[in-house]
Design a protein around this nucleic acid. Structure first.
Length: 481
RNA sequence: CGGGGUGUGGCGCAGUCCGGUAGCGCGCCUGGUUUGGGACCAGGAGGUCGCCGGUUCGAAUCCGGCCGCCCCGACCA
């Protein structure tokens, strides 16, 4: 759909729509390497904005960035039993280098716990060295069988935080704090509402004590795991000998956490806000927040219109906004509208002779609606409108999510819902892996999280949705990406 | 890896059954006229028809083999 002649409607084929929307916005392209994608400038710009916001949040909470190698000695990965079992099937391994067979194969990192904690062991001596709060921005390789742009590719970009703490309580606070931070990012920046909670044993990170996650509901009513935060306990510390001297003179293993979000978030953004025209960027993450389209016939009109357009662009940029002035000649205004709408630009300013004559510009919101803005109120009004769009997108997504959420579901309802239109189903859970597996078997739905208190139903379910045994926790089911 | 589909200028496709000089739309380039929701005219560039082999005077088309990609299932952020 690179010619912009239209994309598959969501209702017809959501997957096709997703691909079309990404292609039209030029966020990404398929690469010559199977399973891998190229992130194009429009897509990478969104990632850079995400990075900046997240990085600021990490720094504000005391974390520092570092960089660890892409290659991990195979033996490292194999040290933690559960970890190797979880990741070995999806690793790429380098066995040759410099024209020679390597003495020890090097795994291309599927995640960096092992190599980072090997280094932590060197750096941590005393309780005074704790907590150690590290983050790295990196690429990862996981040999996926089936890939989708942004949602699952063989190589992807992410951020992985790794921390070491004196005790379980502090590690738990860290893992929890990051989960909250992810939630804030999802809601305040991406305008994507999420449910937070803890993963069941079957969905837990390989090697973790506990895994927490934020889960969002996409427009096709499938869930997207948008971020995870793990309390790793002392599993890795014991294997890699990450020990410290306590204030009392004893020796103890540290408690680790790790947490990450990836370029998958871009897929979440697309599937949360996009419409049948294309993607819709929430203003705070829009590479172009405002596009100005000049409209004119004669040279005289052109001069006047460009004058106002240029001045407007300068004023808005001076106010810190990301503004593009579309001065392409020989392209009709309507064509430009479609072009920028497909890129998800939240606000468009049309500047024509009539506007100039009346001392105004016409503002069109990507979410719908056109209205004039007095030139004298430009910055204030544009800023206000962008904030309104940001709020509107979150509200709209939240309403959609609530409409697709059912609480206190029965077994029959769960089956019907998951094999039907989908959504989030809240219900009682006995805690057994058998029930969990049976439900997955019959509905393809998994427990996304055992939700945190804030998201739980006012009246706790009494019995397991599946087996009628007493419920030990409320669970949220959905079919997931 | 199993099931389904598909490979023809940058993109989307027709042509394949029935072999005979490779076409259409969009995009791209040049010039001109246009410009308040996808402009128009004229001229032009661009393809060893996924790859290898076979049949034939002649293959995009028929036969055999291989490969890629997309969708659906088993693994996963």
């Amino acid at each position: 759909m690179s010619n912009g002649s239209g994309i598959t409607p969501r209702a017809q084929d959501f997957s096709a729509w997703y691909n079309d929307a990404i292609m039209r916005a030029e966020l990404a392209d398929y690469s010559p390497v199977r399973g891998c994608m190229v992130i194009r400038p429009n897509g990478y710009a969104i990632w850079e904005l995400m990075q900046r916001a997240l990085d600021d949040m990490f720094k504000a909470t005391g974390h520092r960035n570092a960089y660890f190698p892409l290659f991990i000695p195979q033996s490292f990965l194999e040290k933690e039993a559960e970890h190797v079992e979880g990741f070995a099937p999806q690793t790429a391994v380098v066995t040759r280098g410099g024209g020679k067979e390597l003495e020890e194969p090097l795994v291309i990192r599927p995640t960096s716990e092992t190599i980072i904690y090997a280094m932590f062991a060197k750096w941590i001596q005393s309780y005074r060295d704790l907590p150690l709060l590290i983050n790295q921005w990196a690429n990862i390789v996981r040999w996926e069988l089936r890939t989708r742009l942004f949602l699952r590719t063989t190589e992807f970009l992410w951020q992985e935080g790794h921390t070491a703490h004196v005790d379980e309580a502090e590690a738990e606070r860290e893992a929890r704090m990051i989960l909250g931070l992810y939630r804030r990012f999802a809601e305040e920046w991406m305008a994507m509402p999420v449910i937070t909670g803890i993963k069941t044993a079957s969905e837990k990170f390989a090697g973790a004590l506990r895994t927490y996650a934020i889960e969002a509901l996409m427009q096709d009513n499938r869930a997207l795991q948008a971020g995870t935060s793990h309390n790793l306990g002392q599993n890795f510390a014991k294997v890699f000998g990450v020990q410290y001297q306590t204030a009392e003179g004893g020796v103890a293993h540290v408690w680790n956490t790790s947490w990450g979000v990836s370029t998958r978030l871009i897929g979440g953004l697309v599937m949360t806000h996009g419409d049948d025209v294309g993607i819709v960027c929430p203003p705070r993450l829009a590479p172009v927040q405002v596009v100005i389209v000049p409209i004119y016939k004669t040279d005289t009109e052109r001069a006047a219109v460009m004058e106002v357009s240029t001045t407007s662009a300068e004023m808005l940029r001076a106010a810190g906004l990301r503004v593009e002035l579309d001065g392409r000649e020989g392209m009709k205004p309507g064509a430009k509208y479609y072009d920028w709408e497909g890129r998800g630009v939240p606000l468009r300013l049309e500047v024509g002779p009539r506007d100039v004559g009346q001392g105004q510009v016409t503002a069109a919101q990507r979410t719908g609606g056109k209205s004039p803005i007095r030139v004298g109120e430009l910055v204030r009004s544009v800023t206000f409108r962008l904030e309104a769009i940001q709020r509107e997108l979150l509200e709209r997504a939240r309403t959609r999510c609530e409409q697709r959420t059912r609480r206190g579901v029965t077994k029959g309802e769960l089956i019907a819902m998951m094999n039907g239109e989908g959504g989030f189903a809240f219900g009682g859970f006995c805690g057994s892996g058998e029930c969990e597996a049976a439900i997955k078997e019959q509905t393809k739905a998994t427990i996304r999280v055992l939700p945190d208190e804030e998201f739980r139903s006012p009246i706790a379910p009494v019995r397991c949705v599946w087996c009628e045994a007493p419920s030990v926790a409320e669970a949220v089911w959905a079919r997931a990406y």
